[in-house]
Computed example of a mutant assay.
Amino acid sequence: MSSFHLPELAKQYTQYDMIRLHTEVPAFPEARSRLLLAFLHESGNAGKSAESLTLAVSLVQMGIDIHEMVSMSNQVKEKKAVRSRQLKVLAGDYFSSGYYHLLSEAGEIGMVEHIAGSICEVNRLKMTLYARIRQLKLTAEEYLQQMAGIRAQLFARFDHLMKSGLGKAWQDILECFTRCELLADELDQLGNPERLRESWAFWRMREQGYGELLGQLESSADKQEQINALMQKCRIKEQLLQLLDEQVGHLYEKARRLDSDRLMQELLQIGDPFLRLVRQPPAAGGAMR
């Protein structure tokens, strides 16, 4: 079965009317799932077992992602918002619980404990990062590195299932992919005032000497327009595109070093959306997305 079918298979665990009515469902981690499945197939873990492993860890990732959407504020009183918050928590737990069923059906009981350990490590890494965010003790590169590490964590610990010689390549290429994915998301969310502090742009502008102004903007009533103006002044979009361009170059270089032409071609195909994003023509008038 092609990896393109996995998002459809995931819907039987995620597409419930009660969930969709009250909250947004996070995107299926398609790039990472396709990547993992390609490496598992190349290592001889073909068929339903590889697909079940990949789908299981993808559902756990979606569970973690929807928990990230839960508002941390206790000031939410409006009934609809409260219900949405409750459904995010319950949906995240429900998505994650799907991996028990999938792994038991595939006879991969040992992987239950393995993935559980990865979940604990993700939570530890997130707590460390959020503490540094609150303390304003991050550089832009540290933010990018730690966020990419959090995204890769659940998938990284499958290296023991890779055949000899592929384990190291798996770690290196996964790191490149998660950085590409993160940079693409940063471009997509560029200028979103609700995610200002949790963005590469915030830390980069602080490095460029705008820390005090950013602090004022976070509490400003018309912060959207001011944030966009500051990002244009700092050329944040151009810097993100340059970082993505460099990362795509690293990714393609590592892919071409692989011994398997089949795996190399699959990885180049998975990375094609990132390449197209870098090569897209600039928006008219330089407007931000």
Rank of each mutant, 00 (worst) to 15 (best):
S3K: 04
L6M: 08
E8Q: 09
L9H: 05
L9V: 03
K11A: 13
Y16M: 13
D17Y: 10
L21V: 07
H22T: 05
V25M: 13
P29E: 01
R32F: 00
R34C: 06
E42W: 00
G44Q: 05
N45G: 02
N45W: 10
G47F: 10
E51F: 01
T54L: 09
L55I: 01
L55R: 06
V57Q: 10
V60P: 00
I64S: 05
I66P: 00
E68I: 09
E68F: 08
M69D: 14
V70T: 13
S73V: 07
S73P: 10
K80S: 10
K80P: 06
A81H: 06
R85S: 11
R85E: 10
L87K: 02
L90P: 11
G92W: 01
D93E: 11
Y100A: 05
H101N: 11
L102I: 11
S104V: 07
S104E: 10
E105L: 11
E108R: 11
I109Q: 15
M111Y: 01
C120T: 13
V122D: 10
N123I: 03
R124E: 15
K126V: 00
K126R: 15
Y130T: 14
R134E: 11
R134T: 08
R134K: 14
Q135T: 04
L138A: 03
L138E: 01
A140R: 08
A140D: 02
L144K: 07
Q145F: 14
Q145C: 10
Q146I: 08
D159T: 14
D159A: 12
D159L: 02
L161P: 02
L161A: 00
S164F: 09
S164C: 01
L166A: 06
Q171W: 00
I173F: 10
E175C: 09
T178P: 03
T178G: 03
R179Q: 15
R179P: 07
R179C: 08
C180G: 01
L183C: 00
L183K: 00
A184V: 02
A184C: 12
A184Y: 15
D188H: 10
D188F: 08
Q189Y: 09
N192S: 12
P193D: 01
R195D: 07
E198G: 07
R206Q: 12
G209M: 07
E212D: 12
E212V: 08
L213V: 09
G215H: 07
L217Q: 07
A221N: 04
D222G: 15
E225Q: 10
Q226S: 13
A229F: 01
K233N: 08
I236P: 09
L241G: 02
Q242F: 09
Q242R: 14
Q247T: 13
H250T: 05
H250D: 08
E253L: 10
A255Q: 06
L258F: 03
L258E: 04
D259Y: 01
R262Q: 15
M264A: 06
M264G: 02
I270L: 13
D272M: 02
F274N: 00
L275N: 12
L275D: 05
P281Y: 02
G285M: 04
G286Y: 01
A287E: 14
A287T: 14
